[in-house]
Amino acid sequence: NHFHDFSDLVIPLYITSRQFNGEVQFVVTDNRHWWISKFRGILAKLSRYNIVDIDQERKTHCYPSMIVGLKYHHELGIDQSKSQLSMKDFRQFLRRTYSLKRAKAIKIGDEARKMPRLLIITRRKSRSFTNIDKITRMASSLGYNVVTMEPNLSTSLGSVAETVNSCDVLMGIHGAGLTNMVFLPDNAIVIQIVPLGSIDELAKQDFEQPAMDMELRYLDYKIKAKESSLISKYKADHLIIKDPLSVHKQGWDAVRSVYLDKQNVKLDVKRFRPTLLKALQLLHQ
């Protein structure tokens, strides 16, 4: 999961190892070669040495000191009361790692004739937009240059980083794809589409607060029942529709199964339009 890759591993690894300026060697267990390959660029910037797979190693390694485990602060973030580092530092580190060109989002009016770029993160299996063409047309009519992206396992992280960094607004339904906001230029805007299910606190914890810590602007859009695919499966008076908290009482697995794994969104473009207009207003500031 892309979110947990960054939140649970990459950012904690950065917090733990950045102090050594590359003079540190990573010793790993339960190695996953695909993961190492995905984040090879970041790992190479944090350590000048080859990674040691301790499960396969037969040699004895001697170090003057060792840190076992990683320093984790909170979801997708760094607590500055516990570290001299910040998410601003981390994002600058990512820009250098992937040679990203843009440090700041467009300010409309300063760059004549340039249209702000809106990146829509799409999904295929769940929490997907079922009317993406209609959303794209509406956004284009407001003056956005619209880009869509659906990263998969074969998409290089460098390619994703370049695409995201080229955009001024990123929007998507609550999910791992929004993690890519780490590559946005400063002052860019994140729009989180919050699906049905009373997951407001989760949405805030996972993406709203991290976006603010990254010096990004944040907007959200909470869908109505009529915009959820669940309305075609359950009657309007069903507890899943009218009382999501009753599902929460059944535990996280029930919430995830119903509201995250089995829900798609047909965005009401007329109702959503003011959110995109608000983003344009912010890009004028």
Results as ranks from 00 to 15, higher is better:
residue 13 L to S: 12
residue 67 I to E: 05
residue 175 G to E: 06
residue 255 V to H: 08
residue 75 E to T: 04
residue 74 H to Y: 07
residue 273 R to H: 10
residue 86 S to C: 05
residue 146 V to G: 01
residue 176 A to T: 02
residue 244 P to S: 02
residue 256 R to E: 13
residue 161 A to G: 13
residue 118 L to M: 11
residue 169 V to K: 06
residue 185 P to E: 06
residue 132 I to Q: 03
residue 180 N to T: 03
residue 282 L to W: 04
residue 215 E to V: 02
residue 204 K to E: 06
residue 214 M to D: 09
residue 262 K to W: 02
residue 243 D to V: 09
residue 87 M to E: 12
residue 213 D to V: 00
residue 272 F to T: 10
residue 177 G to I: 03
residue 160 V to C: 06
residue 91 R to P: 03
residue 46 L to G: 04
residue 122 T to C: 11
residue 240 I to T: 05
residue 262 K to P: 08
residue 134 K to C: 11
residue 14 Y to E: 03
residue 22 G to Q: 08
residue 279 A to N: 02
residue 221 Y to N: 11
residue 200 D to S: 14
residue 59 K to F: 03
residue 222 K to Q: 15
residue 92 Q to T: 15
residue 83 S to M: 05
residue 62 C to K: 08
residue 194 V to W: 04
residue 239 L to P: 03
residue 137 R to K: 06
residue 189 I to K: 08
residue 116 P to T: 01
residue 166 S to P: 06
residue 251 G to D: 12
residue 215 E to L: 09
residue 4 H to N: 03
residue 146 V to D: 10
residue 3 F to N: 11
residue 244 P to Q: 04
residue 123 R to S: 05
residue 135 I to R: 01
residue 153 L to S: 12
residue 156 S to E: 01
residue 273 R to Y: 03
residue 201 E to V: 08
residue 249 K to W: 00
residue 210 P to D: 03
residue 81 S to G: 15
residue 8 D to V: 05
residue 213 D to G: 10
residue 261 D to K: 13
residue 171 M to R: 01
residue 99 S to C: 07
residue 110 D to N: 08
residue 109 G to P: 00
residue 272 F to K: 10
residue 156 S to W: 10
residue 121 I to Y: 13
residue 126 S to H: 11
residue 117 R to K: 15
residue 237 D to W: 08
residue 131 N to K: 10
residue 205 Q to C: 06
residue 261 D to I: 05
residue 177 G to A: 07
residue 70 L to S: 11
residue 202 L to W: 12
residue 239 L to H: 12
residue 73 H to M: 11
residue 33 H to P: 08
